Amino acid sequence: RELEAFAERFKQRRIKLGVTQADVGAALANLKIPGVGSLSQSTICRFESLTLSHNNMIALKPVLQAWLEEAE
């Protein structure tokens, strides 16, 4: 499924970029996305391991996609 594929791609790109899960969480606050502050390292970890609820995964995907586009 698309969500699982994105989570895997996100993790691979993050590692290639040399960015930690905690760095991603902190950097999200800098994107100034309305309603989104920083996220914890454990939230990023749970996203990558697909252990968040489906609704949370869907909500976080565009936020993490925005970070990925900014980071690349």
Results as ranks from 00 to 15, higher is better:
P34A: 14
N30F: 06
T20P: 06
S49L: 08
K11M: 09
I58E: 15
V24R: 01
L31V: 15
D23I: 01
R1C: 06
L17F: 04
R46A: 14
L31N: 02
I15H: 04
M57Q: 04
S49P: 00
R14L: 01
P62W: 02
A71L: 07
T20E: 08
F47C: 00
A66P: 02
E8D: 12
V63H: 14
E48K: 06
V36E: 11
V24P: 01
S38C: 06
N56F: 02
G25K: 05
S42P: 04
E70M: 06
E72F: 02
A71W: 05
V63M: 11
L60S: 12
N56I: 08
S53K: 07
A71V: 11
E4V: 12
A26E: 12
R9I: 08
T20H: 07
F10I: 01
A71R: 13
Q12G: 04
G37V: 12
A71C: 07
E8W: 07
T43M: 12
R46G: 15
V63T: 06
E4L: 07
L28E: 00
E4N: 10
K16D: 09
E8C: 07
F10M: 00
E4G: 07
R1A: 05
C45I: 15
R46S: 14
I58K: 11
A7D: 00
K61Q: 07
I15C: 07
Q12R: 08
L31E: 15
R13D: 06
S40P: 08
A22K: 06
A7P: 02
K61N: 02
L39S: 10
S38Q: 14
S42Y: 11
L17V: 02
V19L: 14
Q21C: 06
A27C: 06
V24M: 05
F6L: 07
V63E: 03
E72Y: 03
Q65V: 11
L31T: 10
T43C: 05
V19K: 15
V63G: 03
E69D: 12
R13L: 09
Q65K: 13
A66E: 14
A26N: 12
P62T: 07
K61Y: 12
D23M: 09
E4W: 07
L50P: 00
L68R: 00
T20G: 06
F47G: 00
P34C: 09
A22R: 10
